[in-house]
Design a protein around this nucleic acid. Structure first.
Lengths: 250, 250
DNA sequence: TAGGCGCCTTGACTTGAGTCAATCTCTGAC
DNA sequence: GTCAGAGATTGACTCAAGTCAAGGCGCCTA
């Protein structure tokens, strides 16, 4: 997947020495650090820590449960699914990570990845050695602050779907969540692809795949959205948001 | 609630100047920092940041949703419940925090507390100004590491109950969790008080209070535990752990 | 173009947990 | 000691979502 497909994912900063630093702005770190007014020298230091890895193909594992934890990574392109497999062989999907989002934060405590991460399509990553970024964070308060924020945000996110919501509410919250996250990175908020199979959506939402199917049909019959295989269009985002409001709390 | 009631909650460290530093070892920070071999000078710096607050009485709020975030706190004694109230007036319990556990971490991102915290019984806290502890963390890598770990741990914890587990499994996981957390602080793993009403347990586990009642009765009939109002004894902890195993993943 | 294979959808039936309503049991106030 | 009220328990009924089974659709390969 070439850079050309994602023209808005790059940010240029003119360094003091006149050279141009180029960041993929999907990296939550660099973008957010920029937003927080981190100075150019600091950005330069962060820059040299980034290791661009990929492409991973659909089905490739990025890390597996039990692997020693060494790095966190920002998704640059594609979708990453994190999941665990219980002793009965059942898969439990923890989340989907879209461009700009960070994976591996839940591995800091324990020194090993507590889950698997797999590419759902062609995935590019920005990898940051955690020991190195920790050391850097002791010198750059803005970076430390950003790391604390990212971690704190994930605590809240994990709690959202834990409630006893109806199948419709769960699906609505899922779709609104994806829509907003894509929009935050400059993609369309109303037309997008579901990059994961129905079984994964069902598993993530703790529903049966049949229920996912039925809920999507209902939403389509109500004129709220239009769905054709994995192609999705939100026709009445406001009604979907209304459904999701109790979960998303806004 | 006097210190005398909790003889094992204090740790003494002889500082280089010969003075004795006294920590409440329930403070996840100081205890864990000790465990990680943080040096005495660093512990001393941490020490002066601690602000002991309380007692809070049952029903007192420690913070409310929307309050400006200023500090995180370790529970020193008692039980703290965190919860939100949705627009329909329904309460959603996020968690119960026992001695040694830290509250407020999910407020770092957003600068305001995203939930309410209320004392379920008599509560004592160790409060740490977050701006100050952040600054200190830039000088003490062990402290920064500990903060990252605490945050990371909470991400994993929030994900546990999110699965679609049966009422029995949820209840088992809840009781095993409390048992282990109390044992880690030196309390009995098999006899303890449920410091919260059934309605709060039900709400936390996303069950109806009636279901909580029925599940406890079933577990008692099976000889797994004995429960009398809020007094609880685990008679066959191994069978309870077996029930909870799929959730706790161990 | 035919065949095979995932993935998805649909319908019929089942069930675990919620809801509603009645009763019980502590506890604390007077 | 008695009463009131909150919290907890129990039973009867309901329903949302799961399970099971069958069939459809799109896509890849030969």
């Amino acid at each position: 997947m070439s850079d050309v497909a994602f023209p808005r994912l790059d940010t240029r900063v003119l360094a003091d020495d006149g050279n141009e630093l180029r960041f993929c702005s999907t990296c939550a770190f660099s973008q957010a650090c920029l937003d927080q007014g981190m100075d150019k020298a600091a950005l330069g230091e962060l820059h040299v820590l980034v290791e661009h890895v990929g492409p991973f193909r659909a089905g490739d594992h990025i890390f597996r449960e039990g692997d020693p934890f060494e790095a966190i990574a920002a998704v640059r392109a594609g979708t990453v699914k994190t999941y665990v497999v219980d002793r009965d062989g059942h898969e439990h999907v923890h989340g989907f990570h879209l461009p700009g989002e960070v994976i591996g934060l839940n591995a800091i405590d324990g020194d090993r990845y507590p889950c698997n991460a797999i590419a759902l399509d062609t995935v590019m990553l920005c990898r940051f050695s955690f020991p190195k970024i920790s050391v850097l964070a002791t010198r750059l308060p803005g970076l430390q602050r950003q790391l604390f924020r990212l971690l704190s945000r994930d605590i809240g996110r994990a709690a959202l779907l834990a409630g006893d919501w109806s199948a419709d509410q769960r699906m609505a919250a899922f779709l609104v969540g994806i829509s907003r996250r894509l929009a935050a990175r400059g993609f369309s908020a109303t037309r997008f692809q579901l990059t994961m199979p129905r079984t994964d959506i069902a598993n993530y939402l703790r529903l049966a795949p049949e229920t996912v199917s039925r809920v999507l049909r209902r939403l389509q019959e109500d004129g709220i959205l239009s769905v054709e295989r994995r192609e999705l269009e939100l026709l009445q985002p406001d009604r979907l948001e209304a459904l999701a409001a109790p979960i998303l709390r806004d």
